[in-house]
Amino acid sequence: MAKEKTNYVCSECGGTSPRWLGKCPSCGAWNTLVETVAQAAPAPGKNRLGTPAFAALAQTAEVAMLSDIEASDFDRTPTGMDELDRVLGGGIVEGGVVLIGGDPGIGKSTLLLQALDALSRRPSGASGGEPAGLDTLYVTGEESGAQVALRSRRLGLEHSQVQVLAEIQLEKILATLEQLRPSVAVIDSIQTVYSDQLTSAPGSVAQVRECAAHLTRAAKASGVAIILVGHVTKDGALAGPRVLEHMVDTVLYFEGDTHSSFRLVRAIKNRFGAVNEIGVFAMTERGLKGVTNPSAIFLSQHAEPVPGSCVLVTLEGTRPMLVEIQALVDSGGPSPRRLSVGLDRDRLAMLLAVLHRHAGIACMDQDVFVNAVGGVRITEPAADLAVLLAITSSL
Rank of each mutant, 00 (worst) to 15 (best):
G332M: 08
L299W: 05
G374W: 09
D330T: 15
L351N: 07
S340N: 11
V373F: 09
L348F: 04
A303W: 01
P320C: 01
M350S: 13
I361V: 13
P305V: 01
F369A: 10
C310I: 00
R345W: 04
C310Y: 12
E324S: 06
D367T: 00
T314Y: 05
E304S: 11
A383L: 09
F369D: 02
P334H: 11
G333F: 01
L343W: 04
Q366D: 09
A296N: 12
L348V: 09
E324D: 03
M321S: 05
H358K: 15
A303V: 06
V341F: 14
M321T: 00
G342M: 01
L343M: 07
T379A: 15
M350V: 15
A327L: 01
G332P: 06
D367N: 09
A359C: 13
G342L: 00
M321A: 00
V373S: 09
R337G: 08
H358M: 00
C310D: 07
N293E: 09
L299C: 02
L355D: 05
G317L: 04
S300K: 15
P307A: 05
C363R: 11
A327E: 02
V341S: 15
P320F: 05
G375C: 04
F369H: 15
L343P: 02
A327V: 02
Q366V: 01
G360M: 07
G374R: 12
Q301T: 12
T318H: 15
G332E: 06
P294E: 03
R357V: 02
L355Y: 06
I325G: 01
S300W: 03
L343Q: 07
G332V: 04
G317K: 09
P320T: 03
V329Y: 08
F369T: 10
A362S: 15
A372H: 09
A327K: 09
D344L: 05
V376P: 03
A372Y: 02
L322D: 08
P381I: 00
L355A: 11
T379W: 08
P381A: 08
I297G: 06
S340R: 10
I361L: 14
V376S: 03
T314L: 04
D346V: 14
R377W: 01
P381H: 11
E380M: 06
S309T: 13
P336G: 07
V313F: 04
V311Y: 01
A349S: 13
L339E: 14
P320H: 05
G317I: 01
H302N: 06
D365T: 12
D330G: 08
L322T: 10
I361P: 00
R357F: 00
P336N: 01
I325D: 07
S300H: 14
L328T: 03
A382Y: 08
R319P: 03
V313W: 05
P320A: 02
N371K: 14
E304H: 11
L312K: 07
C363L: 12
A296P: 00
L351M: 08
F369G: 02
G332H: 03
A362G: 13
P305W: 02
S300A: 14
G374A: 07
Q301F: 02
E316M: 09
M350T: 15
G375E: 07
M364W: 10
V306D: 07
S300G: 12
L328N: 06
S309L: 10
G374D: 07
L322F: 11
C310F: 10
P334Y: 03
E380D: 12
V376A: 13
G317E: 03
H356V: 00
L328R: 10
D346I: 10
A296R: 14
A303G: 13
